[in-house]
């Protein structure tokens, strides 16, 4: 793939999602575009890129962007951060929410491992606490196809073994054709919707916990502050934002809206000063 062609699709990704395409391995972008080309009925990546310059451009732009920016995480990635969520944040939220559900937004759900991991942690936390607290998880991603797939809760033989313990696997998933499927109780906890963190403004719903891992570092420097503010505005007054470990370190972008929670890695609260500004 020539640098010029790579530049065209990188610019498209930046314009639509605010994300910088990793152009260091052109072969990876070419392989992903090859999949999109086949799916859209083109004989080659070159044919697909040519069509992007025709009246087909608008129809093809999102499939191309989704194909290039799709990412996959394992289950329970960054276990130290998740342990803090399970042992400190969820019990705290359960205590202050009482009979109301704890609302969680998983803002970059990818292929689904992150929201299902959160659902498992919530069920395990509820079991440790003797039950009695409700959790609603709202999972979003840029990719419609990714959401459609993640909603099924089916993971391949290889995917299911990355990050989960064997005990978690057999307690929360059942073997089905094509892999392992999340239990209906896990699937029922999660609601799915498409959200573009770059362009979609926060809705009216406020969340007790927002989990957004792996996306901010991919965003271009000039759009990251907007994404951070949108995440902060989505938090309930006493809500928490979870970023990937080290994702917020040294980030001046976070400062106006968020404050790191002392003693916890990767977990932030809304800056009270920012709250005043919002009013």
């Amino acid at each position: 793939m020539t640098p010029g062609k790579l530049e065209i699709v990188a610019r498209l990704c930046l314009m639509r999602t605010g994300r910088r395409l990793d152009t260091s391995v052109p072969e990876r972008a070419a392989a992903r575009l090859g999949i999109v080309a086949r799916r859209e009925g083109y004989g080659s990546v070159d044919d697909l890129l040519l069509a992007l310059r025709t009246s087909e451009a608008e129809r093809l732009a999102w499939p191309v962007v989704e194909g290039l920016t799709a990412f996959e995480r394992g289950f329970m990635e960054d276990p130290k951060v998740l342990k803090q969520v399970a042992r400190r944040i969820l019990p705290h939220l359960a205590g202050i929410k009482g009979d109301n559900p704890v609302r969680i937004w998983c803002a970059a759900a990818g292929s689904g491992q992150d929201p299902y991991s959160l659902a498992i942690l919530a069920q395990e936390a509820a079991a440790r606490m003797g039950g009695g607290f409700q959790v609603e998880i709202y999972a979003s991603d840029l990719s419609v196809k990714g959401i459609e797939r993640a909603r099924t809760g089916i993971f391949s033989h290889f995917e299911i073994q990355k990050g989960l313990s064997a005990r978690q696997m057999i307690d929360h998933f059942q073997p089905v054709e094509g892999g392992w499927q999340a239990s209906s109780s896990l699937r029922d906890m999660i609601r799915w919707r498409r959200v573009n963190l770059f362009s979609d403004t926060p809705g009216s719903m406020r969340f007790d916990l927002v989990v957004c891992r792996g996306i901010l570092p991919q965003m271009a420097a000039h759009v990251r502050p907007t994404a951070v503010v949108n995440l902060a505005l989505s938090l309930a007054e006493d809500g928490f934002l979870v970023l990937g470990r080290w994702e917020g370190e040294g980030e001046a972008d976070l400062a106006p809206a968020l404050l790191p929670l002392p003693g916890l890695d990767g977990i932030y609260t809304r800056n009270p000063a920012f709250r005043t500004l919002e009013v």
Binding site: A166, R167, M169, I170, P175
Partner: peptide, 21 residues
Amino acid sequence: SDPGMIGRALASGANEYVMKP
């Protein structure tokens, strides 16, 4: 890869379980 057999292995003292391949 039967969940019952995996559970049996864990109950018998296995610490973890990997399914081949």
